[in-house]
Computed example of a mutant assay.
Amino acid sequence: MPRLPRLAGVATAVLALGLVAAAPATGAEPLVTDARILTHFDLAAGQTPENIALERDGSADLTFAYARQIAHITLDGDLEIRATLPDVANPDTPVVHSALVTGIARAHDGTLYVNYATGTSRTGVWRIPRDGGTPVQIARLPDDGLPNGLALDERHGVLYVADSALGTVWRVPRSGGKATAWARDTALDPLPAPPASGFGANGIKIHGNAVWVSDTDRGTLLRIPFGPGRSAGAVETRASGLAGIDDFTFPGRGDSALAALNDTSRVVLVRRDGTRTVALTQADGLSNPTSVAVRGRTVYVPSAAYLTQRDPNLLLARLRHLLGRV
């Protein structure tokens, strides 16, 4: 969830802070172990990691929101800038009023797709060649929107975009073309800012014949099942009380999700019955985490330090057990 950092010289978007009640872990064993920071980023350079996609070798591709960059991080912690989105004169993105790169998705052939929010005609989905290169806009999204999370359905050749300002899930052909509103619902909307953040639909994943979306202001995790012809079914609230939820992932085949709670610098496991367990905290090195990814039993958590203004980083940890279908 992008917030305007003080380094940009504009006031940070204010969020309603809250604590999430955590169900105790089963037994005395922690859910994750061996947390360590793989690499630290430069806040002054705008290296605020917003979203993550994993390569086959376990390395990571990150969007640096306010630097407008896509960075590649090896398992040794080495950093390479793969692409930079073009500068925009007089950006006017809702809520943040700056141009920023948000969600990222990776195809099996290595092609990267990212969302770019600008408040101009350059707002939309952009494609970046494998191993980097010149970004190309493949779809335009509304100037008054804030495209945030991004998910790729490679089998059906489409991308889904969670729009935090317009409370909409957009559907975009992977090959490029016109975006269509796939789902609109009050449950996807932001709440008025202030006192809320103005961020509605945020993270997005395709899982279990459905599109899942987090709503930051409402603190909810939502499921939108696919209907006939891959249309959007009725929105279901699967979990609530997740104050400051940003992006999330599914670490197993079931409906339990690991979610980043930006405000309180936590990652929690949200089970399919809505109960939750705290997995990682600020004590482990989190600093306003924005997203989560899992490869095998390795957990990746980027932190953007939007509110703490201290130590944006990429943290790795290890799941003690594979979660299967829980």
Rank of each mutant, 00 (worst) to 15 (best):
D153V: 05
A232H: 07
L19F: 05
P195Y: 03
A293C: 11
R276L: 10
E55G: 13
S291W: 01
L7V: 14
D143A: 14
E80S: 14
G296T: 12
T123D: 02
G177E: 09
R122A: 13
L221Q: 06
G119F: 08
R130L: 06
G124E: 02
E80K: 13
H97S: 10
G119L: 09
V136T: 15
A305P: 00
Q137H: 02
P30L: 13
L62S: 02
A117L: 07
G149C: 08
T93M: 12
S303Y: 07
L85V: 08
W170N: 11
A60L: 08
L38A: 10
T180R: 10
D255G: 00
Q309R: 11
F248N: 05
Y160M: 10
D189V: 02
L4C: 15
R36K: 14
H108Y: 05
V301D: 02
H156I: 01
V114I: 12
P2K: 06
T275M: 04
S231Q: 13
H207C: 12
Q47N: 12
D87A: 14
S121A: 15
R155C: 08
P129C: 10
A196K: 03
G254N: 06
G219P: 03
R310D: 14
A28K: 13
L323F: 09
D246Q: 04
V161R: 03
R140P: 00
I206C: 08
T290P: 02
V278G: 06
G203V: 06
Y300P: 01
A193M: 06
D76S: 15
A260L: 06
A151L: 07
G124P: 01
P251H: 03
D247A: 14
G229V: 11
R297Q: 14
S291N: 14
I128Y: 04
S197F: 09
R82I: 13
D109K: 12
L319S: 01
P289E: 08
D189W: 00
H97G: 00
T277C: 11
P225R: 06
N115T: 15
A13F: 08
V20W: 00
V96I: 15
S59R: 07
D78S: 13
R271F: 12
Y116A: 01
L159T: 10
G198L: 07
L221N: 04
A239D: 09
V268F: 02
D131G: 00
P30D: 12
Q309K: 04
V267F: 01
G227S: 15
G233T: 07
V235R: 04
